[in-house]
Amino acid sequence: MIVLRNVSKTFHAAAGPVTAVDDVNLNVEQGQIYGIIGYSGAGKSTLIRLLNGLEKPTSGSVTIAGKDIAQAKGEALRQARLKISMVFQHFNLLWSRTVSENIAFSLQIAGAPKAAIKTRVQELIELVGLKGKEHAYPAQLSGGQKQRVGIARALANNPEVLLCDEATSALDPQTTDAILDLLLDINRKLKLTIVLITHEMHVVRKICHRVAVMEAGRIVEEGEVLSVFTHPQQPITRQFVKQTAEYSSAETPFNPELIDRTAGSVLKLTFVGQNTQQPIVGELTLKYGTPFNILHGKMTQTTNGTFGELWLQVAATGSALENILADLHAHAITTEVVHD
């Protein structure tokens, strides 16, 4: 659906050339929700502008649904952009127009008949949950409602790809979750391909199928969300994964530095899929006759499945500890010895 091959983008500044996107290769399949995560300056926004033709790559190719966006010009580019819509961080609504008029705007530009516009606007208002707000102006809406208008407007011309540039970063956590649920619902109902730019791993965890991690213009890690969460390879990815433990203010993040390390070996267990339902700790306690002290645990849901993390302390060293680790490995449980 979306294929980037050796894509680079260099800007020429007064201080010299700046490479915002550096030799990026990417594949996004039809119907996927694909997350691209990175901190400010990583090159995410430039990358998304390359996807809709607002920027041209310095080198490489950008192909969407078989069309080379990087080479398209004039009418060909305009027609391609009709199938690639954008949702913005700060909504970008027309403040002098009502909800219905904002949604209708892109249809009017595309030259759709008035009757068709009226029908389509009503369909979209129902889809994004804004019934009763048709005649309200943006100033009368909450942040979440404004973003729903932005999403409805982006869907007006039946796009094949929806680009979301930090679409939830201006919203509070509860509203963010509601908007993410809406995007997930739209993806399921319309089979729409969604590319989501963010700096929040919670957003990726909640709705994305795959994720690419960007740093200094390059993709440093990529894969299924569940795999990246359970086995992050790069320091920046581990930093993002740590965000999810701190996302909820109701949860106090676990600090392994506070453990009494004189009481035995400390193990961090990562369970995936069905293993999250197995009484592994109980079985080990019975087998070895050694109590396992549970220090901390949590379960996390992704679109690819569930994984759990469990921190244990056990009075075992040497060969006894090696046997325990072998048993855990036999159950396909990833184990890290934090302290022995």
Rank of each mutant, 00 (worst) to 15 (best):
I2M: 07
I2S: 12
V7Q: 04
V7W: 08
G16P: 05
Q32C: 06
I33W: 08
S40D: 00
A42S: 15
A42H: 09
K44Y: 06
L47W: 13
K67R: 15
D68N: 15
F88M: 08
E101Q: 15
A104W: 07
Q108P: 01
I109K: 07
K114M: 06
K118D: 14
R120L: 11
V121M: 10
V121H: 06
E134R: 03
A136D: 00
Q147R: 02
R148I: 04
A156F: 13
P159N: 03
L163F: 09
C164Y: 13
D165Q: 09
D172C: 07
P173K: 10
Q174Y: 05
L183Q: 03
I186K: 01
N187S: 10
R188W: 04
L196V: 06
I197M: 04
H199L: 05
C208E: 10
C208A: 14
V213C: 01
M214L: 12
G217S: 01
G217D: 03
G217A: 02
E221K: 00
G223M: 03
V225F: 10
V225L: 06
H231Q: 13
Q233P: 03
Q234F: 04
P235H: 11
I236L: 15
V241C: 10
L258S: 14
L267I: 02
T270A: 07
Q274N: 12
T276I: 15
T276F: 06
E283T: 01
E283Q: 12
Y288I: 05
Y288M: 07
F292K: 00
T300I: 15
T303D: 11
L312M: 06
Q313M: 03
G318A: 06
L321S: 11
E322Q: 14
I324K: 08
L325S: 07
A332W: 01
